[in-house]
């Protein structure tokens, strides 16, 4: 199974819009949403079945048993994360606690224990196709491990698919690195703005370190022809494969709002994404056989 990861560096570039179109075009048997902070793919790849849900545990959180607590203040003084308050009895701020265990260590009477804490939920939809996704709980930090779990679900549930399409996480942090791990190719969706270019370069650097095969496409290219040309020029200079331009399209917005992909309706962005798709698939499969 070849894994195609779609990434953007910056949020809001249309990563999910493009991923959903690719899923439709390829009739992908397997796909995943690794944007565990704000997953959106499920909104557009409608699932008729209920998913199999699994709790995801992050770092444990401290809990103080106020009946045992002798109010010595050791835990509060030693907590580097300002997570313990003493206002009305000693209490741990669930969101500030990073589960380091120092409070448990310093407590002279054993009033503090680390308790497992659910940090998110994994969902696996299984019918003719397999869709793996997850949602982090509010206040839980970005998690590479949850992303790894999302990808594991796909691998364990799918046996015969040729292609898996993975909607990646934004940014350049550890969830992105976890998304990148083990994929065959990454398609970077860039936006032609100054900040978009800056973010694109950061994500290219990250992917390059991994040695993953990559290609670039530009979404909403007509919002700045000047910056679009800059990106294309940058790709040429650095020998990066360029997969094409997709225009800004109000029909695309309408399609998404109706829960459709942009290739479900007749629109200019849909036509453009088809071309990008064909090139990408060719690049993903053909180049491999040449090697």
């Amino acid at each position: 199974m070849k894994q195609l990861l779609i990434l953007s560096g910056k949020g809001g570039t249309g990563k999910t819009t493009i991923a959903s179109a690719f899923i439709k075009l390829s009739k992908a048997k397997a796909y995943a949403d690794c944007d565990v902070d704000a997953p959106n793919l499920h909104l557009i790849t409608k699932q008729s079945h209920q998913p199999k849900k699994t709790d995801y545990y992050g770092l444990p959180k401290a809990e103080i048993n106020t009946e045992l607590c002798i109010q010595c203040d050791q835990c509060r003084q030693n907590c580097r994360f300002d997570a313990i308050s003493a206002n009305e009895g000693y209490k741990v701020d669930f969101y500030a606690c990073e589960g380091c265990g120092v409070c448990e260590l310093v407590c002279p009477v054993g009033a503090v224990t680390l308790k497992p804490a659910v940090a998110g939920e994994l969902m696996l939809y299984k019918s003719e196709d397999v869709f793996s996704t997850a949602q982090l709980k509010m206040g839980s930090g970005t998690s590479g491990m949850l992303v790894t779990e999302v990808k594991k679900q796909i691998k364990s549930a799918v046996t015969d698919a040729q292609l898996a399409i993975i909607d990646g996480s934004p940014g350049i942090g550890c969830p992105v690195i976890a998304s990148l791990s083990g994929v065959d190719m990454v398609l970077i969706v860039a936006e032609p703005s100054i900040s978009g270019i800056s973010d694109m370069k950061r994500i290219i650097n990250t992917a390059a370190k991994f040695g993953t095969k990559m290609a670039i496409c530009i979404n909403k290219f007509d919002t700045s022809i000047e910056n679009t040309e800059k990106i294309e020029c940058f790709c040429k200079q650095h020998g990066l494969a360029f997969m094409g331009r997709i225009p800004f399209d109000t029909d695309a917005v309408e399609a998404i709002n109706n829960g459709q992909t942009i290739v479900d309706v007749a629109c200019v962005s849909g036509e453009a994404v088809k071309e990008v798709y064909n090139k990408t698939i060719y690049f993903l499969f053909e180049r491999e056989t040449e090697k």
Binding site: G11, G12, T16, D37, A38, N40, L43, I44, Y95, A96, L136, M138, G139, S140, G141, T142, P170, V253, I256, N257, G259
Partner: peptide, 29 residues
């Protein structure tokens, strides 16, 4: 962006919050 603990830290002492939203299905979510 998002609603992780780093955002909580940023708004802790704010007097008012402005939420910016896009007019799409993704935006609502």
């Amino acid at each position: 962006p998002g609603s992780a603990c780093i955002v909580m830290e940023s708004i802790k002492d704010a007097d008012y919050c402005i939420l910016v939203a896009e007019p799409t299905l993704f935006g609502v979510h």
